[in-house]
Nucleic acid binder design. Structure first.
Lengths: 234, 234
DNA sequence: TCAATAGTGTCTTTTAGACATTATATG
DNA sequence: CATATAATGTCTAAAAGACACTATTGA
């Protein structure tokens, strides 16, 4: 409880939380990164992260990192642990054990009101067009993207990327952006509506986009966490 | 990994590793638990756990916990992170952030040569026939079991429970024990051999059990990590 | 009108599952 | 011989996927 008392056997160390926040913008999967203000890391980009405070849960630290470093307060965003990175030499100065989180959110508000934070196209990360990553975040980022790709198959996580009510065209665009594929609209619809409790009809119709098109029915998230049957990658 | 080199708010805290080691014995899924020598926890059972030392990786701590507390040295056992439990009040005396691991191993050697460690039938845990768990391990254990059940579907993890070479009857017994179901032997064989790189034939035949039966072909693990197509739960 | 998107119908191929049949061992 | 387990064959039902077709909007 106190946190100041340390046992003689335990090393004094620090626990941090780093958040990989993914969203979808213009049909592309994007990742939030921030520029650390450490001079030694000038020009590099990092996942938003904060040290865990006394009496603060890990989830709370994750939310605080997003808020303080990118101005993002997303209390209803999906947030789950990715894994914990604790190699003794992953930080040059001090041993820091980092609990990495995966966050998914719809792209609603402006990218960010902080000028040291921006979204990057995940396809560019790791290429010359993308950012150079600080710390060991080049290990965390691929893990986060693969987790999202994988969980879209057997959980209802895709709905975390869209705002309610949503159309099945919007939901299909999530799968297409995250998986990087094109899906048949008709077969996709049939699968989604036949998967138990994936989505429920919300009533009413959405307005078509600027190019026209038949108005789409609107849906909300269903009660299912895991999908039966699963939505398997092509 | 915060971009701030030192913060006065960072707590001196301890990081520990707890390991949920699952194995299969007599067709049942079993979990390794140890009796802590803390007098306040007399009669309770816990996952083997150790504090992380300086210059020790988290994986190393997991192996050390198994070795020191249960005499299990399983360098080739499957070991993966489960999640990290870091609620401020999860430990009564001191804030301890615990990285939980899931370990899977074939049941080969004697259960243990430590008299404070034993395997428990997972079906009994949580019932009056099972152990009373210490700390917040009653939260970790169900997560570990569900992780194993789930990953058997879409990864080749089932092979971590058997020794090479193995028969498809032995592999089927893994699925039946973890999922708690009966599977058709013929259909199971067809699925396994048609799943790319799940298993490869090792040559030779296994000797039948005491009740007789046709000798079974022997297999080794294939190169696949994820299964395509998946082995879905009935 | 045309282009674009939503939704339905239909057909084929693949897969899952039930269950019978054959093969080869032990006792 | 009976019994047990392995491996294969067969049939049916369900699911996946390709693709045509209809419906309803914006320009």
């Amino acid at each position: 409880m106190t946190g100041i008392s340390t046992t003689p056997r335990a090393a004094a160390c620090a626990v941090a939380v780093d958040v990989a926040l993914l969203t979808i913008q213009d049909g592309r999967l994007r990742l939030l990164l921030v520029e650390p203000d450490t001079p030694a890391l000038a020009g590099r980009w990092a996942l938003p992260g904060r040290r865990v405070r006394d009496e603060e849960s890990l989830d709370d630290t994750a939310h605080r990192a997003l808020d303080e470093l990118a101005g993002i307060t997303a209390p209803d965003a999906h947030l789950e642990q990715l894994r914990t990175y604790g190699d003794p030499d992953r930080d040059a100065t001090d041993r820091v054990v980092s609990v990495a989180y995966l966050a998914l959110t719809p792209m609603t508000d402006a990218p960010t009101d902080h000028d040291r934070a921006r979204f990057w196209d995940t396809d560019d990360i790791g290429t010359s067009a993308g950012p150079s990553l600080a710390y060991d975040h080049d290990r965390i980022v691929p893990d986060a993207i693969e987790r999202a790709r994988s969980k879209l198959e057997y959980t209802a996580l895709a709905t975390a990327f869209v705002e309610e009510p949503f159309t099945l065209g919007e939901l299909r665009a999530v799968y297409e952006a995250v998986w990087g594929v094109r899906l048949d609209a008709g077969n996709f619809r049939r699968k989604v509506v036949s998967t138990r409790d994936f989505v429920v009809e919300a009533g009413g119709l959405a307005r078509p986009g600027p190019g026209g098109g038949r108005p789409a029915r609107r849906y909300r998230r269903g009660s299912a966490q895991r999908l039966h049957p699963a939505m398997l990658r092509p």
